[in-house]
Design a protein around this nucleic acid. Structure first.
Length: 881
DNA sequence: CGCTCCCGCCATGCC
DNA sequence: GGCATGGCGGGAGCG
């Protein structure tokens, strides 16, 4: 190798040079490395040097399909380096020779391009996040290694981490089974539960301080006596088949990965610094652990972190402490699922659902497992779940049809989880989580503006999720949805409209109203005020709801974007800058001066409220959606979609900037809150979307998430209703929608009227959902989706919204969620069937299109909501189905 | 200079 | 002994 390189020159990276060399020599090159016979055997010619070279070859060799696939993947994926993809492509496609070498060299090889994170992305790109139950994908390590042009060793690194999260399971010797993220939420939940047991105390203690979790890290050490326990979840091995053993040392990477994830899940701040993690993982509390050991651990953690980052579960941030800044990672994945689930389970006999439906080799996911799904979903919402009654409903509902866990492992996990859970509950008292009733607060808050719903950024997301499910549905919900009344509910189990016991909401059978909440501008306040009632719970709720970020934010504030601008945290500004750097994430940053610091109180409450609403919705609607929808996604939605998005992008650039912006502005956004009125019986075709918030910001829709929702039932606080002006319009369809009738004008008029009522708030009416799928498919540029693509709403909307531009970055932060009602007319779509063919379709078809897409997105993305969506869009654009 | 983390040697353990 | 795994840490890329 050296020889080569040297000759070539490339002092730095052999790789760079190589391309040329390889190509040339390749033919001849034989050398390959002898090192491991095996390897050699596997792949005959791989050039050790240039992974890319292999790639090229393979690609070229590969069928066109593959090629396309790859391309798409790259394009769509938010891969860190956009460049990278380019380079790759170029490389792949072209075979360059020496002449250009220099250039190429520069482009490609760099070390970054060979990073584990990138490799992992490529790896993940090869498999669907949510594979159909039917398709069981087996992964051949050798094959993947050769395709990706890396050594098998690297694949192990990736697979081990994925396995720890049950995204894959080992089937046999060189074979792994791809499960996708169907079980991710469950797994995370379990890990959370396990983590709470192990590290919970620590966290608890710490969380008060929060400021920078880091601190607590130390505590943890102290506290955790046995952190080391081992693998919390054994499932890793249990896999379906082989399971070979657990031999080897415990497979540290796997275990480390689980523990690492647990730390995030248990951490209130969701930020874990590497050193703390390393210390904890070292098990010992030995502070003194040798330095070398520590170093090694950290290295491993980087490996794990890279994979998790690729999965969109965490992102790199820097924590600034007194001493200086330390590398840390922030959890941006779904957070809450667990609780809900747990709760649910608790009620019911645990795990039943899960069991083994799938046992087979790889599992399938699927089915019914109501429990789980719910869990997940709920979880997402969750934390905030309101009443038990509600929950139950939820639980009953099948959120997503598929999902399911696979196998025994799952069951094990579940059991474990349940156990943990109980314990936890006892200790902690689930109460916190559980009770939250925010909804009320929302309504009341009248703030001034309009309805005054308090917006929570997060809320928005949740909504989305809810939506998703409905849409998705495998259940066919969509069609049903049209009727407000039951569909969803029916699915759910109950679905009956009624008052929710503890909640202040009224549930309308048909889904007459739907509230969406977005953060207000005001939300800036990082803290939510407790509005009306929830106060007490509020805090808790807030956490739950927003959990990740918002709540804590205050202290650390990282995210906040949506709502909170951070309070005043000291953290101050320094951090903010961070965001720029790569991603938006700076931990500290939060502060941003948001513009108006008003703190209205509401925000917090709002959020919570929103959450509740969502949950409710879910219940109602959920039935439908779930299937695809991932539980995860739901959660994700909430708080962090931004984060997620950002994550995705992170690595490279923040393409969009939106995120940045949003984050930067802490305030960002506002997330608009909307009231959605579904067509009730009388109004059948109308859907109203009111922005609860102030007009201005309110409207922005975020493209990303957007998926419309169809909510069968809407929960509205009774009182609230009174205060809200309802607008009725005759139905009109969105322009996009195929149906011409309503034409905008009509709509517009309607809107205006509304607006008048509401003040500026724009009202959005449409029968169809408005989706904002990203605008055009064009995204090429963006690495992934920009956080929120501009929405495309009817012109009218835009106007109304003028204050906020749809496109404006601000909006981005919040995805707009569209709520879609389902119209009777619309044929029931199956999620799949629906598939958005074209973007256009998207817009056009009222319900069906949007929905499906939407939900899918949701599903898919948990973390990457936007991205997935975009991808789809893009794809569709690119190639019509 | 320090953070990252790629690379691949080599131990472990099954067959 | 062969081979699959994967622990481990040297040392280089990179900011």
């Amino acid at each position: 190798e050296n020889i080569f390189d040297r000759s070539r020159m490339a002092p730095k990276t052999p790789i760079k040079n190589e391309p040329i060399d390889l190509s040339k020599q390749k033919g001849c090159t034989p050398e390959r490395n002898p090192i491991t016979p095996v390897k050699i055997i596997d792949r005959p010619q791989p050039d050790p040097w240039t992974p890319t070279a292999n790639l090229k070859i393979l690609v070229s060799a590969a069928s066109p399909d593959m090629r396309d696939r790859e391309k798409k993947k790259e394009l769509f994926r938010p891969i860190e380096n956009s460049e990278q993809s380019d380079t790759l492509d170029s490389l792949q496609y072209d075979i360059v020779d020496d002449s250009t070498v220099d250039e190429f060299e520069k482009q490609r090889p760099s070390r970054k391009q060979k990073s584990l994170g990138l490799l992992c992305q490529k790896f993940l790109a090869r498999y669907p996040n949510y594979p159909l139950s039917t398709e069981k994908t087996t992964i051949s390590l050798d094959e993947v290694a050769s395709i990706l042009g890396v050594e098998r060793r690297r694949i192990y690194d990736i697979v081990n981490v994925l396995e720890s999260l049950q995204l894959v399971s080992r089937v046999a010797k060189n074979q792994y089974c791809w499960h996708g993220r169907h079980n991710l939420s469950q797994t995370l939940k379990m890990l959370q539960n396990a983590g709470e047991l192990q590290y919970g105390e620590l966290m608890t203690c710490q969380h008060k301080e929060l400021d920078l979790e880091y601190k607590f890290g130390e505590r943890k050490k102290a506290i955790i006596p046995d952190s080391q326990d081992r693998p919390l979840l054994d499932f890793s091995e249990s896999d379906c088949i082989s399971a070979s053993a657990n031999s080897r040392k415990d497979k540290s990477l796997r275990i480390m990965s689980q523990k690492f994830v647990m730390l995030f899940l248990v951490s209130k701040t969701k930020i874990v610094t590497l050193d703390i993690a390393a210390k904890i993982l070292i098990e010992e509390t030995q502070d003194t652990v040798d330095h070398s050991k520590f170093k090694t651990k950290v290295r491993r953690l980087y490996d794990i972190a890279n994979v998790l980052t690729s999965l969109g579960l965490i992102k790199k941030v820097h924590v600034t402490e007194e001493r200086g800044r330390k590398p840390a990672f922030k959890w941006i994945g779904p957070v809450e699922f667990p609780e809900n689930t747990d709760e649910l389970r608790g009620h019911s006999p645990t795990s039943d659902p899960l069991p083994e439906t799938q046992k087979g080799a790889c599992a399938q996911y699927q089915t019914s497992a109501t429990g789980k799904q719910r869990f997940t979903r709920h979880a997402s919402f969750n934390t905030a779940q309101p009443c038990e009654a509600t929950r139950r409903k939820v639980s009953s509902e099948p959120n997503s049809p598929h999902q399911e866990r696979q196998d025994e492992n799952c069951s094990k996990m579940i059991n474990l989880a349940s156990v943990c859970r109980q314990k936890i509950e006892e200790d902690t008292g689930s109460a916190k989580k559980s009770n939250i009733t925010l909804p009320v607060s929302l309504l009341p808050v009248p703030g001034d503006s309009d309805f005054s719903v308090n917006p929570l950024p997060q809320a928005v997301f949740p909504v989305v999720q809810a939506d998703v499910p409905s849409f998705s549905l495998p259940i066919g919900i969509s069609s049903q949805a049209s009727h407000p009344s039951m569909p969803a509910a029916s699915k759910t189990e109950n679905g009956k409209p009624t008052l929710v016991p503890n909640q202040p909401f009224l549930c309308f059978p048909s889904s007459s109203l739907f509230m969406l909440c977005g953060g207000l501008q005001e939300n800036n306040l990082s803290e939510p005020l407790p509005t009306v009632g929830d106060l007490g719970s509020r805090s808790a709720e807030a956490q739950a709801a927003v959990p990740p970020t918002v709540c804590q934010k205050r202290s650390s504030q990282k995210c906040s974007s949506p709502s909170a601008p951070g309070d005043d945290e000291e953290p101050a500004a320094k951090k903010q800058t961070l965001e720029h750097s790569d991603l938006p994430i700076s931990l500290v940053v939060p502060k941003k001066p948001s513009e108006s610091p008003k703190a209205e109180s509401s925000p917090g409450s709002v959020c919570s409220a929103a959450v509740h609403l969502e949950t409710n919705n879910l219940d109602l609607a959920s039935p439908s959606a779930p299937e695809t929808a991932n539980k995860e996604s739901t959660k994700l939605l909430d708080c962090q979609e931004q984060g997620k998005q950002s994550q995705k992008k992170d690595p490279d650039d923040p393409p969009p900037g939106n995120e940045h912006i949003s984050k930067e502005n802490a305030n960002q956004p506002f997330q608009p809150q909307y009231l959605y009125v579904q067509p009730t019986a009388g109004l059948s075709s109308f859907n109203f979307l009111f922005s609860a918030n102030q007009a201005p910001g309110a409207i922005s829709l975020a493209a990303n998430q957007l998926p419309s929702l169809s909510v069968p039932c809407v929960m509205v606080p009774s009182a609230a209703l009174a205060s809200f002006p309802l607008v009725c319009s005759s139905s009109f369809t969105s322009p996009l929608s195929p149906v011409p009738d309503g034409s905008f004008s009509a709509a517009a008029s309607t809107n205006f009227s509304m607006s008048s009522l509401a003040s500026t708030t724009p009202v959005f009416l449409s029968t169809t959902a408005v989706v904002t799928p990203k605008v055009s498919p064009t995204p090429s540029a963006d690495p992934q989706q920009p956080p929120h693509p501009a929405l495309h709403l009817s012109p009218v909307l835009t106007r109304s919204c003028s204050a906020v531009k749809l496109d404006s970055p601000v909006c981005m932060g919040h995805p707009v969620t569209l709520v879609k009602l389902q119209q009777p007319s619309s044929a029931p779509l199956t999620p799949k069937s629906i598939r958005p063919a074209h973007h256009e379709a998207f817009f056009k078809t009222p319900g069906s299109l949007g929905d499906p897409v939407a939900w899918r997105k949701n599903e898919g993305n948990q973390t990457r909501n936007a991205s997935s969506v975009q991808r789809r869009l893009e794809i569709s654009s690119t190639s019509p189905d």
